[in-house]
Design a protein around this nucleic acid. Structure first.
Length: 606
RNA sequence: GCCCACGUAGCUCAGGGGUAGAGCGCCUUCUUGGUAAGAAGGAGGUCAUGGGUUCAAAUCCCAUCGUGGGCUCCA
């Protein structure tokens, strides 16, 4: 497959960025330009502007861009010497900084090191009156671009730090999307609109799953009954699975003494992600940012033998982390969340097998939930940073254990620097959602550091004390984020086993109210989550039940009562032939127990 | 936290320097209806909060809080 960087679309978007810059400079004389690369689906350009950008500016710039395109100017490339470049961009400090980076700093426009064995050649591209430092490539002429196949008003202007560093100047970023044809643009905008419809925040309100209250605090979700039921189903699903795999439940409190976190290293290594300590009678307590220190105390409560290992302690543990207010986002980024946590204490010999077992569990969980578009990332530490505990040898050992396990399982993975936890490297499962955003869900971490810091021990077969290794792992990551993603993944139409309400009972009239209530009781006795709809006429009941995306609408009227049937309608509008109540129960049970997505499976062989 | 935008009824939104609007939802009554809104009445808002400008502010200005799009940071 063709690389994006080599594609025509890439050239189109790159060229669009230059045209945007030209138009912006005409609108904002004296503006300073930074960088303007193509990105997925479009491009952007960063500017330092004398004032805020308004909608009218964007309209003007859009029209001007169309004129430039229609002007059919050639993109003219030329090689310039460093001196020429400095002269050319003498009023553009960001460009000068880029030039110095290229010429003497050995870094490219993103601040990444250049390949050392390459001579730096500075090039510029010019269209019409605008010349930009750029290595290309571009289309030949502006006339190749379609003036009706781009938009810079589809997204608000945004702030962005120069070189992505929050210590730097905040620039104004104008985003654009550009395509080959107006039809492609239309399709893309339509996709965005659809994605908006399935935003978990919107669906969370419509389906009555969760809410937020400014009085409780931002980033602190409140789970309403339907959402709490969904949460509970997921927890029970995972808990049952883990119990079957030898995990043991524990429960620990939401705060702990500061000393605990000083020993663990959370304080100070993780301090910037924590709420400030709470003073209680002169003692300092911390809202727990992680569950591991508490679980370690349970391990240490009694002497452990190698015969006790692996010891797998699990807890749906709620943790609190300080997130900057601008980072909060619905359920996917909150300040208090529940980790489907477990800490597994193993002997070094057991590590590989146990690690593999954990990855298998995570894969089982993802599969059961219909999540298939994910990748595995091995996060190792950033050698430049000092926010890690433990010595090099431990990090080396832990990272190679993870990679060995991946190789052993034939798991596709890639290594990412700076993505480790502060106490050890990790294997993350990153899910790609319908909006093409990526979310870190499941995670497994190998940790030699905390056992050391807490002086943990077990007695080996040699009757001598040994240090265990710890695996931290969470298949969902956090219930909050996971559910947020599930909501969008299913567009709120959960498979039967996850649906907060599974069956809506819709009596045709109150003449069959008694029979409808009997059906409700019957279905509840069979273990289904059932809700009676009594408002208005049948049409209204259908409408209300469908708004909640309830999988089965069980309609019962005089004819059904007479025949001992129920008329099933699905949330997608499918109407089934009236069927005996027993048949419906059998089918629904089959669908729920097998966690099927299909609500009407072939029952002929069941 | 930073840049920008937004905040009007439970929800979705219109309006806009001179006594607050719609649809849905909610309540009451009537209706007992076979596959996406039965009918009629009614309640409900200090227009996020606090200041300022003005004869007069929901409307203009400032601050705060909250939300959204980005940046940075993360499960």
């Amino acid at each position: 497959m063709e690389r994006y960087e080599d594609s025509q679309l890439y050239k189109i978007r790159h060229s669009m960025a230059h045209i945007l810059a030209q138009a912006m400079l005409e609108r904002f004389p004296g503006a300073r330009i930074a960088i303007g690369p193509p990105i997925e689906d479009g491009f952007y350009y960063d500017f330092e502007l004398p004032r805020a950008v308004h909608e009218a500016d964007l309209k003007w710039v859009t029209e001007r861009m169309k004129e430039i395109i229609k002007g059919d100017y050639p993109f003219i490339r030329r090689v310039v010497s460093p001196e020429e470049a400095r002269e050319l961009f003498k009023d553009q400090p960001y460009k000068l900084e880029l030039i110095e980076g290229l010429v003497s700093g050995g870094v490219d426009e993103n601040g990444n090191p250049l390949p050392t064995n390459e001579d730096v050649v500075l090039t510029t591209y010019r269209q019409d009156t605008f010349e930009d430092l750029c290595r290309g490539p571009h289309v030949e002429r502006t006339g190749e671009l379609n003036p009706e196949a781009f938009s810079i008003t589809f997204k608000e202007p945004a702030g962005a730090y120069w070189r992505g560093d929050e210590k730097n100047q905040m620039l104004t970023r104008i985003y654009g999307t550009a395509w080959r044809t107006p039809e492609e643009l239309e399709e893309y905008l339509h996709l965005l609109e659809e994605a908006k419809q399935r935003d978990h925040r919107r669906l969370g309100t419509e389906l009555e799953l969760f809410t937020f209250s400014p009085m409780v605090g931002k980033g602190l979700p409140l789970w309403k009954p339907r959402g709490a039921i969904l949460r509970d189903i997921l927890q029970r699903f995972l808990q049952d699975e883990q119990l079957a795999r030898g995990y043991l439940p524990v429960v620990t409190p939401h705060i702990g003494k500061l000393d605990l976190y000083i020993t663990s290293g959370h304080y100070p290594y993780y301090a910037e992600s924590q709420f400030d300590p709470i003073d209680v009678e002169g003692e300092q307590y911390l809202l727990k940012p992680m569950n591991c220190p508490h679980h370690i105390q349970i391990y240490k409560d009694q002497p452990r033998s190698h015969r006790d290992l692996p010891l797998r302690l699990m807890e749906f543990g709620t943790v609190y982390r300080y997130e900057q207010s601008g980072e909060l986002n619905g359920l996917t980024r909150v300040r208090g969340f529940t980790v489907d946590d477990a800490h597994i204490f193993v002997t070094p010999e057991q590590l590989l097998d146990e690690f593999i077992a954990v990855v298998e569990l995570i894969q089982f969980v993802f599969n059961s939930l219909g999540l298939h578009d994910f990748r595995a990332r091995v996060g190792v530490r950033d050698p430049e940073s000092d926010k890690y505990i433990g010595d090099d040898e431990m990090w080396e050992k832990a990272a190679s254990a993870i990679i060995e396990a991946c190789e052993h399982m034939g798991l596709q993975y890639h290594v990412a620097k700076g993505e480790a936890a502060f106490y050890g490297p990790k294997l993350d499962f990153i899910f790609r959602d319908v909006l093409k955003r990526e979310w870190q869900l499941g995670t497994v971490q190998v940790d030699y550091s905390l056992p050391e810091r807490f002086q943990m021990e077990y007695i080996g077969s040699d009757n001598k004390p040994h240090r265990p290794v710890m695996i931290h792992r969470a298949p969902f990551g956090s219930l909050e984020r996971f559910i947020g993603i599930l909501i969008e993944h299913y567009n709120g139409a959960f498979p039967l086993w996850l649906s907060p309400t599974q069956i809506a009972i819709l009596p045709v009239s109150n003449k069959v109210q008694t029979e409808a209530e009997a059906l409700e009781a019957r279905l509840k006795a069979e273990g289904f989550r059932v809700e009676m709809f009594n408002k208005g006429q049948l049409g209204r009941k259908i409408r209300d039940a469908r708004a909640l995306k309830i999988p089965y609408l069980a309609i019962i009227g005089p004819k059904d009562v007479e025949n001992g049937t129920v008329s099933i309608r699905l949330r997608d509008d499918t109407e089934l032939e009236p069927m005996p109540v027993e048949d419906f129960i059998k089918m629904a049970k089959y669908v729920a127990q097998n966690r099927l997505g299909d609500l009407v499976p072939d029952m002929s062989n069941v």
